[in-house]
């Protein structure tokens, strides 16, 4: 077949791709250039942004003020932590440490047992986050997908728990923990904080917003209750779970009042308590080590936020149903 005469014949035109648009039918379209009014010319290349320069400048000023309000104190925390004591009190204030004094950090870490407080914080926050996220997801899954008696009443109860300020229960909690002899223990700090209402509320509402057909498809496919949770529901819920985790981590890391009441030694107390104790030891005048401690307490949260925020924003339900 390779030397067949037919192969010599060149087709008059190359075959077109199926998807390619053909030129318009002769006579239906105008050849000349389209009109271009002054307004059209002005809009060119500017996209859809049509706000006037005045509005834009005002917007930038507002933005700058907002950023300054947040960033200037943070900046001062960081530079103060690197200043020597005379430098902190110099008048007028200096915007750059002179001389540069990172010894504040080694001082808090070694002399003031900050490494221990940091360890305690990691333990407490880690355990609490795991417990709270697990409880939140499981209870929300039950509230969303199992029909049981008094379900709605119990859910209202959970929401009601959200409305009660923590401080109200603190005295009874304290007497109970003290009676149990749990003062200055991790278990004494963790157990009263491990209750979860917000997570249940958040996750349940998210679960209910998932397309009903996907749950039905999982049922038709014979997926078991927990397999549906781990293989179908959770993979569609990561952004919410991560948001919930992040809120929990930050909240527990910064938890102050309760650990302050039940822990007062570096054996179990977390960082915020350590900061208070640090201030007690250093007096109200030596801000360098205090600020170094503050930076050390803040840094882990900043890192975690930077790692998680991208995943939180990413939508994962795309393509589940027609979209």
């Amino acid at each position: 077949m390779t030397t067949s005469v037919d192969t010599q014949v060149v087709p008059p035109t190359a075959p077109r791709d199926a998807g390619e648009a053909l030129p318009p039918v002769p006579g239906t379209q105008i050849d000349e250039a389209p009109q271009l009014t002054a307004a059209q010319r002005r809009r060119r290349g500017r996209g859809v942004d049509q706000s006037s320069p005045v509005v834009k400048i005002a917007g930038y000023i507002a933005l700058a003020i907002t950023v300054a309000v947040i960033m200037v104190p943070l900046y001062f925390i960081v530079i103060t932590s690197l200043k020597t004591r005379p430098d902190i009190y110099s008048d007028p204030i200096t915007w750059w440490p002179n001389p540069f004094n990172p010894q504040n950090y080694s001082y808090v870490m070694t002399t003031l047992e900050f490494d221990l407080y940091l360890r305690n914080s990691v333990i407490i926050t880690g355990i609490l986050t795991v417990v709270k996220v697990t409880l939140g997801v499981l209870s929300a899954y039950a509230f969303a997908f199992i029909k049981f008696p008094l379900r709605n009443f119990l859910f209202v109860l959970v929401i009601a728990a959200l409305m009660v300020p923590n401080q109200i229960t603190i005295i009874s909690n304290y007497s109970l923990i003290a009676q149990l002899g749990w003062r200055n223990t991790f278990i004494g700090i963790i157990v009263p904080l491990a209750g979860v209402a917000f997570g249940t509320f958040l996750m349940r509402n998210h679960f209910l917003s998932l397309p009903k057909e996907i749950m039905e498809a999982a049922e038709m496919d014979g997926s078991s209750f927990f397999r549906t949770l781990f293989k179908v529901v959770l993979p569609m819920s990561w952004p919410t779970v991560i948001a919930f985790t992040l809120i929990t981590v930050v909240g527990e890391w910064n938890e102050y009042l309760w650990p302050f009441l039940v822990a007062d030694t570096s054996a179990t107390a977390p960082l915020p308590i350590g900061l208070t104790l640090l201030q007690d030891v250093e007096g109200l005048t030596n801000w360098g080590p205090v600020m170094a401690g503050t930076v050390l307490a803040t840094l882990p949260m900043l890192v975690i936020f930077l790692i998680l925020q991208k995943r939180m924003i990413k939508g994962l339900t795309a393509g589940a149903v027609k979209g």
Partner: peptide, 8 residues
Amino acid sequence: SYALYPNM
């Protein structure tokens, strides 16, 4: 709506 599992 097809109800495919979007993560798979």
